[in-house]
């Protein structure tokens, strides 16, 4: 459903991605592992149209979407949850959610459905719905970022380090959310520092090094064989 083919990307003059190729099938959770600075976040941004690839192609739903504007990609069913969450700080929780709800094809019934669903997953957000985004704690902001992405009814969520800086209790909750989204048929491309979490929720895992994908394996195989993990991630 989503594929990156030999994608090269630059920040200014520095060459960050040196030909990344990966694929996510419909409804599949795929992990993207690698040390800091190997280009995992840049890969997600490039897929989302925020970094323009110098070479290569992004294919989504059988269509070449390389160079398509970010807001159009969001309408096509790609959602991005960035690692720093990027909640709109002066918008309330409700208004943050509205940024994804106010679009063509969302009638009253559907709005209510979508809201009911996220408030069931994240009851805390319902309590804080009139609070400004900036007043939420880190964990609450992460929930809001995921909830906001869900408002778009995406086919795939690009999830960038969802557990970064969260308490262990929250990490468990994020894991549950990923499972629930998968059961709902939403595909996820997960960038994560926590290897155990990634291996637990993913079907397949890609391992990146220096701007390229070095290794691909089903998650169960990696769980059984930690030599690969040690080699690329040094843990």
């Amino acid at each position: 459903m989503l594929a990156a083919r030999d994608v090269h990307a630059f920040y200014g003059k520095s060459h960050i991605l040196h030909g990344v190729s990966l694929e996510v099938r419909a409804g599949e959770v795929v992990g993207l592992l690698g040390r800091n600075g190997v280009g995992k976040s840049t890969t997600l941004k490039t897929i989302m149209g925020l970094v323009r690839p110098a070479r290569g192609a992004i294919v989504f739903d059988g269509r070449d979407v390389t160079g398509v504007a970010t807001h159009r990609l969001a309408r096509l069913g790609l959602a991005w949850v960035p690692e720093d969450r990027r909640i709109f700080p002066s918008l309330s929780v409700w208004e943050n959610l509205r940024t994804g709800l106010d679009r063509a094809g969302v009638g009253h019934a559907k709005r209510a459905d979508l809201l009911e669903k996220v408030f069931r997953y994240f009851p805390l957000l319902a309590e804080r719905r009139y609070q400004a985004g900036r007043t939420l704690s880190g964990g609450e902001q992460q929930m809001l970022a995921i909830a906001r992405a869900m408002m778009l009814e995406p086919k795939i969520i690009l999830l960038d380090e969802p557990t970064e800086g969260l308490m262990p209790r929250m990490v468990g909750q994020i894991r549950e959310i990923i499972e629930t989204l998968r059961q709902d048929g939403v595909a996820i491309l997960l960038v994560e520092q926590s290897v155990p979490l990634t291996l637990a929720v993913s079907a397949r895992v890609y391992i990146m090094e220096k701007g390229v994908v070095r290794h691909e394996a089903p998650a169960p195989a990696l769980r059984a064989d930690d030599a690969v993990i040690r080699r690329y991630l040094g843990v």
């Binding site: 925020l50 969001a74 002066s90 918008l91 509205r98």
Partner: peptide, 17 residues
């Protein structure tokens, strides 16, 4: 809301469609 969201973070606004 679109205007305020764009003012606060135009990249994220675009990512929200």
């Amino acid at each position: 809301i679109w205007i305020r969201a764009t003012a606060q973070d135009r990249t994220m606004a675009a990512a929200m469609g």
